[in-house]
Amino acid sequence: MTTELITKETLANGRTYIHRTSAHCETGVTSALFRDKGLDISEPMIFGIGSGIFFGHLPFIKQTGLPVSTFRSIPGLVFKKAAKRLGVKVFRKRFRNQQKGMDELRRVIRTGQIVAVTTNIYWLSFFPRRYRFNFSGHNFIVLYENENGFRISDPALLEYTTDCSTHDMERARFARGPMEARGLMYYPLSVNPDHDIRKACITGMKDSCKQMLKIPIPLFGVKGMRYLAKKVIKWPDKLGYVEACRQLAHILRLQEEMGTGGAGFRFMYAAFLQEAAELFGSEELAELSQEMTAIGDIWREFAVVSARIIKQRGQSEETFAKVGGLMLICAGREEQLFKDLDKVARKLKA
């Protein structure tokens, strides 16, 4: 049941690429890019080292007219941070000219170097139609050219490699609108063989603690959770039941649907803490991993209870006060967890 799904592909220069399923696009892509350069690192490790875990309520950024609540750091940041902390030199470029962007992609993959691209999901016809929203922030890896266009590896959504037509690729990479990718492509140039994974883990943990606890704006980190939880409780009175359900559904979408591996990345972070615990031989980290799992389970309960409210439209026994309360519990426990993690990380020896 838990067999790891692996597909192999041969690249332009004869090297072998291994496709593995991941839970999220950016971390999965980063892990695959680094592995391809000989740095064997798992997806949760990338997530932890790149300090991907976060919370932010962004009422000023609207998606389909609804405020965005994010459970992760800004797209692109995990890759940048993980690369820096692991001593990986990277190439990262956007293009003004569409033709140049496509030519450069073709040139690089012909050398056998795999390339990650950022795309707009709406234009990717290999996706199920109900996944295809106008959202520019999906990453996948281009392997080589073939008669259908390009052979690609999308670790977050597909268990196997697939084809992407040239038309789809052009439209998706150069789609206009919010967060437009402008043909962004990136890949590692070289990996420092003397990279210090322990030091990278410690840096990543400390940075995450800072992001979750120390940002002096009440919309981010644990404070953001509390702020949103209090808003959720008031929604039915303030917005009316239907609109309140719509807004609640939007939180769930960002928590569960968009390739988060469930529970808004909390399980992936628990997996990172577990791997780090083994790396450092630290009992404390293992305990924190268990606590993170427990928090992830509460986030899941939040999703289940919210879904019940939305589905039964007022007929349900569940209330907005209850889901808001669950979010406050998550906030309290995450606050304690990151405080403890900060202490543990300071004691660890690189």
Binding site: S22, A23, E159, G261, F267, M268, A271, Q274
Partner: peptide, 18 residues
């Protein structure tokens, strides 16, 4: 299409579960 999830096996170890 299946999605990847991280979940605990019976030994308490995280594994990828589609």
């Amino acid at each position: 299409i299946k999605k990847g999830n991280y979940a605990l096996d019976d030994k308490g170890k995280y594994v990828m579960v589609p």
